[in-house]
Design a protein around this nucleic acid. Sequence first.
DNA 1: ATTGCGGAAATGTGATCACATTTGATCAAT
DNA 2: ATTGATCAAATGTGATCACATTTCCGCAAT
Lengths: 190, 190
Amino acid sequence: MYGRIAPGEALTLRGIGKEFDVSMTPAREAVRRLVAEGALFLSNSGRVSTPELTSERLEELAALRALLEVELASRALPRAHMALIDRLTAINGNVADAVSRRDAVGYIQSNLEFHRTLYLRAQAPAMLAMAETVWLQLGPTMRALYGRLRKTEPPHYHRLIIAALRAGDEPGLRLAVRSDVTQGLRLLAR
Amino acid sequence: MYGRIAPGEALTLRGIGKEFDVSMTPAREAVRRLVAEGALFLSNSGRVSTPELTSERLEELAALRALLEVELASRALPRAHMALIDRLTAINGNVADAVSRRDAVGYIQSNLEFHRTLYLRAQAPAMLAMAETVWLQLGPTMRALYGRLRKTEPPHYHRLIIAALRAGDEPGLRLAVRSDVTQGLRLLAR
DNA sequence: ATTGCGGAAATGTGATCACATTTGATCAAT
DNA sequence: ATTGATCAAATGTGATCACATTTCCGCAAT
């Protein structure tokens, strides 16, 4: 999810088991779960690797993020009080730090923490779980995408999201979330 | 997915293994996958059962269906030619048959086949997979819901969907799909 | 009749094993 | 230098086992 593994990287059950000091059995179960969620790709011969997403698949996953996260933000809006907005602002500072440090994993992690913190307020666990499933599928590719970013831009749309929350502006919030979520993809789609 | 298992019904690894003539290992992997997809519930002690959905969870899953399936239908619309519409009409006949036979499983199965056939045209596999994940979570409960239906109603909204496809009417299609998908829930929400 | 308790049966977990398949490297032939 | 074949190493699969927990039933006490 956080892009620690590159797209297409292969994993083995015995390797995972050794890494976490368990036998093949728990490693197999974890892998099976991640395959079910689309986070790992299972080849015809049973080998597992992180997925290498086609641009069509990327477009789809971005559309899913937009659909799900706009709805989650909408549902969170009426419950978003000052404490939440303060917390989001603080997390946003971590995002900016990670960007200035050019720390890809840290950027992805704090960026997703920003979104998750907001969406938790929506009180919609099934919906949030689906959004996280999408994040899981995008993880390795997002990291690769970040490498292509030249400029160290601060999280512009996050500011818009926070402003819309403050103002109780639902249309503005929906637009800001949609923009934030599809922004990164535009760079890769080309 | 098709409501063959009642909500809250318990499953055991050894039981599944015996049923399909395999050992515990493949049964465990299948169960793990289904748990990851939310189709099965894993208790704190590791026992598995089909989920018993709260009404809040039901509302969420219905909202997810609406979000995902309206988008899928929209994407399928420009690619929906006469052959597809004919096929949908035929499947719709099966739905009506199942309703008149009061065959709950047959109804759910052919109903979902109707939707899947349409959405396959959207060429959006990740999105379709998410929709099917939701269906999987709703399966047992949908069956229980069907039991509460007194009247043997023909699939009204399916006709609207087909009409909108014929007319190339996107707003109409979106509304019809949304109505069809949330219709059943309204009965249970009360 | 209800509650509490004891113990046997059932269940999930993690480990290990044998086996079939796949992978990948080495070496020979062209 | 490139291709093809060969073979050893690596890998996933399904089965089985021992063990710790949990579940559940029956019985007794109140």
